[in-house]
Design a binder for these strands. Structure first.
Lengths: 339, 339
DNA sequence: AATTGCTGCTAAAACCTTTTAGATATGGGA
DNA sequence: TCCCATATCTAAAAGGTTTTAGCAGCAATT
């Protein structure tokens, strides 16, 4: 059963497709179609249950009313939540969203960008992987509306919305120090990405400023693509080797989870044996026992501002995206209380 | 800067677009294009960095290589995880996925189906809302490949993959009874959807079979669209009224979360004051303290089988989707242990 | 010499819209 | 009577691809 097209309506009313198109696009007045004919056409469209073929429209106009959202992993709470916000915000402006996960894999990310380009996205929101700078640059050259999110390339002139990672880490670690912890480890991922470097610098500087000696043995970097169990084992052996650790700062939510599992495996009590603060909030951290102190990102705001900036670029063709830096908030819970 | 098209390649090589299309679609042999010309064209395509316009292709072929995935809420762990599995599986078959959330809102769901239809999805995976039967029927009439997921309409002849909800609930409640709990409440949502009814029947039958008297006062139905805090308050006032409750069975993951929060608010200890088993697994249930016993759904399998069945329908035009019912697994943790 | 069959390629239509550049008809003014 | 302005509508192109139907050229067969 074929879909009804504009042609069917035209035939039904006995009029040209041009006229139908004008009416259906609300240009009846502008194009001086008589009120009478206009109503006839509208009625016919409703009666035949006409639905415009967006593909054909997309081909003709070059616009798909679809945004591409590239995240690291849609099953991670942070990105899932972000995706929902983006979906909702985009919807408000009449846009749909196509989601993709890179798994932080460079090749996959590149091919995703190609794929989305082939599908003529009107704009892009991207959590870039390390090697994606080239593709981002291409998008910019073609002056596609684009916002980076969560992280960015300092050398590229793209819009982005990120948080003050340095500050988040700095506050968290400073708080741990003030609570009396002395040997604060950091569990982070092996990555040269700007957001991770900033978090690391925040940790280092906080130690420095409070005259706590930093010890390279207390820095644990975990490969990004390690499987869950392997990652937990890494944490466990790290904790076994570095007995003096009395607090840990984790730079992502999943590292926080690994660390909790590791500590539990070793029978260490939080916060009595080891204090803990991690980046990103979720239900486990909020409701687990003990509850976990976190550096929470304003996910809703991040998503909203990214979409807003993107839509802005879409409307005002000229503008290059703005650089937006939001503040994270340190949420103190049980895991960082020195006994 | 315009994208290079097949025409540009044709001009560049001095040949017709037909030939280029044949070669680029790997039909060189079949269409008897000489090896020499074929290579020339391939080289030119690479050199000009040609990328096929999927919109144009979609218009011509009527196929977009895109699947529509409609879930309840992409930010819910269950659906986020499912989305990831679907994304990965679809990718293996060369398909992209467009995600949408219904928020269990009927109107939104209907308009999402329309939207995806307008965008010519090749197939649909849908978590239907109550009122969506009509739209589903339409899709079936137009013989669009379609799989329902998580729930289905018994009266419709659509394919689906679901779990044995009755069994999951039955096992959970039976286990609570065997642990010695006597006054087992159920916290569920107000819904006539088949999966919820099944879970409720499982609860009822388990009580019956073990000769535990069922008490309508121990049944708490919560509106789906209640905000987080309001829902928690509902649970709290329910627990306050029904003092005799010594165990609770929650029929969804978020109801489990509400209940944990409610119990904590009241200072009730799990499992000593109140035992708890909830549907769906997540990190909070797994790693929280106490850890929570759950009826876990095989999310990976659900996603895989749905995509597989869908692809099958796409290939073998004729087949109507199969009815797949998977078994949930009861994972016993600390929350259901009678002291 | 005419037919057949093969090889290697192409013209043009089709998919459904939007949009540009008119066409036609009517009435009014010179 | 002729021209112009206005109102109302339309033909046709364009967007990029796939695909059907078929064309030319040549060798082999009758």
């Amino acid at each position: 059963m074929k879909n009804v097209s504009i042609k069917d309506i035209a035939r039904y009313v006995g009029v040209s497709t041009t006229t139908v198109s004008f009416v259906l696009n609300g240009k009846a007045k502008e194009k001086r179609i008589s009120e009478e004919l206009k109503n006839k056409i509208l009625k016919a469209a409703a009666k035949l249950n006409y639905r415009p073929n967006q593909i054909a429209r997309g081909l003709r106009t070059g616009t798909t009313h679809t945004l591409g959202l590239i995240v690291e992993d849609i099953s991670n709470h942070f990105f899932a939540h972000l995706a929902k916000v983006v979906e909702d915000e985009a919807d408000k402006h009449g846009y749909k969203v196509m989601f993709c996960s890179t798994e932080n894999n460079e090749e996959k990310a590149v091919s995703l960008v190609h794929l989305l380009k082939n599908r003529q996205m009107d704009g892009y929101i991207i959590t870039p992987t390390p090697g994606l700078a080239g593709e981002i640059e291409n998008l910019l050259k073609e002056s596609k509306p684009l916002m980076l999110i969560d992280r960015y390339f300092p050398e590229l002139d793209s819009g982005y919305v990120a948080i003050d990672n340095y500050r988040g880490a700095h506050e968290a670690v400073s708080f741990l120090i003030k609570q009396g912890y002395q040997n604060i480890a950091i569990v982070t991922i092996e990555s040269e990405q700007v957001q991770m470097l900033d978090r690391y610098r925040g940790y280092e500087d906080a130690l420095l400023e409070h005259r706590v000696e930093s010890d390279p043995h207390l820095v644990k970097k975990i490969q990004f693509d390690l499987a869950h169990d392997a990652a937990v084992r890494e944490v466990v052996s790290f904790l076994q080797k570095q007995k003096k650790i009395d607090a840990i700062f984790c730079t992502t939510n999943y590292l926080g989870v690994y660390t909790i599992e590791g500590l539990r495996h070793l029978g260490k009590k939080i916060p009595d044996d080891v204090g803990l603060i991690t980046f990103d909030d979720n239900e486990l951290f909020r409701l687990g026992s003990p509850s976990i102190s976190v550096v929470a990102q304003p996910i809703e705001k991040i998503g909203k501002m990214a979409v807003e900036a993107l839509i802005d670029q879409l409307k005002n063709k000229t503008k290059r995206g703005s650089h937006i830096v939001l503040n994270p908030s340190l949420i103190i819970r049980e895991s960082s209380r020195q006994q």
